[in-house]
């Protein structure tokens, strides 16, 4: 088991008039090697949830177990947990600070106390993964475009080689090509290294395409939890929460209503195209 939440509640500014229950009695299990998507309306508690994964936030109530270690135990080293659970924050480009890209990515591995050679190897590998070329290494991170900064920031976490990778809206504000590149990279990491990935996203399309399981957050609670097909079946519920199903599902539904006998359990455009083509062939 990678991550286990038992009755976790988080209250911000407890005991003041600004008190806010951000998580309310959350119970979730995430298995090793799983690719989990978290969706939810703005303010539903997604970012709060994932900051519990590596002990940056402590639950007001309940227990969290990460990679077999209880986080509120005294002898659990949070430093170790933070190396194993790599967390890429929303807008991670705002955390860059070093003089050069190379040094910035090296910050994490250096804090782990690795040898100089190992740090260098990891930085190169991580920057390569996100598509930053060698001739950029000595540039200042502040000269980069927003999307490039984002990649450097993600590399900064990848260089720590986490066992669990958590990404909070890694593609918000990127162009379609940059988005695809980053997502493909994440998918590859998941497939080749078998690491557990948890992805927060507002894009139903991305989620549908990538993940094994979806957790839907609503007002601090888990509203739905299951495989993409079964979660997106609840279109009406999702819409009430300010979410939606992937566009292609709506198209398939409309086609069905118009009399074309297609399956409506289709999540990606590719699957949809195949389905329509095969039905049309049959009709001929």
């Amino acid at each position: 088991m990678a991550i286990k939440f038992e009755k976790v509640t988080h209250v911000y500014s407890k005991g003041t008039p600004f008190e806010k229950i951000a998580l309310n009695n959350i119970n979730i299990h995430i298995k090793k090697g799983e690719f989990v998507g978290i969706i939810g309306h703005t303010g539903s508690g997604k970012s709060t949830l994932i900051q519990h994964f590596n002990g940056l936030l402590k639950p007001t109530e309940g227990t969290i177990t990460v990679l077999g270690k209880k986080l509120n135990d005294k002898d659990t080293s949070l430093k170790e947990i933070r190396q194993k659970v790599g967390l890429v924050f929303q807008y991670p480009e705002h955390q860059l600070f070093e003089m050069t890209i190379f040094k910035d990515v090296a910050f994490g591995p250096q804090n782990m106390g690795l040898s100089k050679e190992e740090v260098e190897a990891r930085v190169k590998e991580a920057l390569d993964m996100v598509g930053i070329k060698e001739d950029m290494y000595e540039k200042s991170p502040f000269e980069l475009s927003g999307g490039q900064k984002r990649r450097v920031a993600i590399a900064g976490v990848l260089a720590m080689k986490p066992e669990i990778l958590v990404l909070d809206e890694p593609t918000a504000g990127l162009d379609p090509k940059g988005r695809d590149e980053i997502l493909t990279q994440i998918q590859r990491l998941h497939k080749t290294l078998g690491i557990t990935v948890i992805l927060v996203s507002h894009s139903m399309e991305d989620i549908a395409k990538l993940v094994d399981r979806i957790i839907v957050m609503h007002k601090g609670k888990v509203a739905l939890n299951g495989a993409p097909v079964s979660v997106f079946e609840h279109v009406e519920e999702l819409e009430k929460m300010g979410l939606a199903a992937p566009q292609i599902m709506y198209i398939m539904k409309a086609l069905k209503e118009k009399g074309l006998d297609v399956s409506t359990n289709i999540l990606t455009v590719e699957e949809g195209a195949k389905e329509i083509a095969s039905i049309l062939k049959k009709q001929k």
């Binding site: 900051q51 940056l56 933070r82 705002h94 910050f107 994490g108 804090n111 900064g156 976490v157």
Partner: peptide
Amino acid sequence: DKIMKAQMARGAD
């Protein structure tokens, strides 16, 4: 708060 957390996630102390 946010930046501190982000750097702590990268092992800053």
